[in-house]
Amino acid sequence: MRTLYFDCFSGISGDMVIGALIDAGADPLQMEEELKKLNIDEEYNLSWGKVVKNGITSTKFDVILTSKSEQPHEHSHTHGHEHSHSHETEPNHSHAPHNHHGSRTYKQIVEAINEANLNESVTNMSLAIFKKIGEAEGHIHGLPLDKVHFHEVGAVDSIIDIIGAAILIDQLGIESVQSSAIPTGSGHIHIDHGVYPVPAPATLEILKGVPIASNVIRSELATPTGAAIATVLAEKFGTLPAMTVESIGYGAGTKTFENHPNVLRIIIGKIQ
């Protein structure tokens, strides 16, 4: 069985997942084409390229929002070594759930995914991950699912990170997913609502039932998007399973830490 293992020794975020999948040999151009089916491609450009994190060559993936999008960012963007891919396309507003006040509702995102004509496996993965985040946000803010707005995580960023990851996992023919325990980091972060402890409430809610690894790093290591991707897709959490390794990918995070590389490692192989 073709298995993907998330080795989250430095946490997990949506952009790290996509960077690692590209690094492991997935095709980002095919992903970019598939993402156009969502009809929001005038709102962003994608870029990816190799960076070195504490001695490890890894792939950094970024969603660069255009002026047509006013959503806040989940992560800051660096443009050191990237190869930017930008395509001018005719804006198509027929299905696009546009809302330029910096948020999209959970309902709008579900409609956009259902109308996008992505294949069944990508659609199901994407909907399940968004539902996980939507339920967690709803639980924290005391809102029913259809009233949940995506603004904190940066609506466009999370749409691209989640659906992009689903496209690449499907493309690679992954049949099962496992993950290490998830380190969340510690300390405090500044978010829309003020100063919050790490892990942020939504991240912790998403990780209910999942083993969390202790980590001394005073920084947010797992984002809601990264936590939801791992929680929804992984059937099992633990050490690396016995497998014949076929490919390995390193996805770079935005932050740099003194004593270890801020990368997500994915290991793809066959389990007998």
Results as ranks from 00 to 15, higher is better:
residue 1 M to N: 06
residue 2 R to M: 11
residue 5 Y to W: 07
residue 9 F to P: 01
residue 9 F to N: 04
residue 9 F to I: 08
residue 9 F to K: 01
residue 9 F to M: 10
residue 10 S to Y: 08
residue 10 S to P: 07
residue 11 G to L: 02
residue 13 S to E: 05
residue 15 D to Q: 05
residue 21 L to E: 10
residue 28 P to C: 02
residue 28 P to D: 06
residue 31 M to R: 03
residue 33 E to P: 04
residue 39 N to E: 14
residue 45 N to P: 06
residue 47 S to F: 09
residue 49 G to M: 09
residue 51 V to Q: 09
residue 57 T to A: 06
residue 58 S to N: 04
residue 58 S to H: 06
residue 59 T to S: 03
residue 59 T to I: 15
residue 67 S to W: 06
residue 70 E to A: 08
residue 70 E to D: 12
residue 70 E to I: 14
residue 74 E to A: 12
residue 75 H to Q: 09
residue 77 H to D: 02
residue 78 T to D: 13
residue 85 H to Y: 10
residue 91 P to N: 11
residue 93 H to A: 11
residue 96 A to L: 11
residue 97 P to Y: 05
residue 97 P to F: 06
residue 107 K to H: 08
residue 108 Q to A: 14
residue 108 Q to D: 15
residue 111 E to L: 01
residue 113 I to K: 03
residue 115 E to I: 03
residue 119 N to H: 09
residue 120 E to L: 12
residue 122 V to R: 00
residue 122 V to N: 02
residue 124 N to A: 09
residue 125 M to Y: 08
residue 129 I to F: 05
residue 130 F to Y: 02
residue 131 K to W: 07
residue 136 A to W: 08
residue 136 A to F: 09
residue 142 G to D: 15
residue 143 L to R: 13
residue 147 K to C: 00
residue 148 V to D: 02
residue 151 H to W: 07
residue 151 H to Y: 10
residue 155 A to D: 08
residue 155 A to K: 00
residue 160 I to Q: 06
residue 161 D to H: 13
residue 163 I to G: 00
residue 164 G to I: 10
residue 169 I to W: 03
residue 169 I to E: 06
residue 172 L to T: 03
residue 173 G to F: 02
residue 178 Q to S: 13
residue 182 I to G: 04
residue 182 I to H: 02
residue 189 I to D: 09
residue 190 H to I: 15
residue 193 H to P: 08
residue 196 Y to C: 01
residue 196 Y to I: 14
residue 200 A to E: 02
residue 201 P to R: 03
residue 201 P to K: 11
residue 202 A to C: 11
residue 210 V to T: 08
residue 212 I to C: 00
residue 213 A to C: 07
residue 214 S to C: 13
residue 215 N to S: 11
residue 216 V to Y: 13
residue 229 I to H: 01
residue 230 A to V: 13
residue 236 K to G: 04
residue 238 G to F: 02
residue 241 P to A: 09
residue 241 P to H: 07
residue 250 Y to H: 11
residue 251 G to P: 08
residue 252 A to R: 04
residue 256 T to W: 03
residue 260 H to P: 03
residue 261 P to A: 04
residue 264 L to V: 14
residue 267 I to L: 07
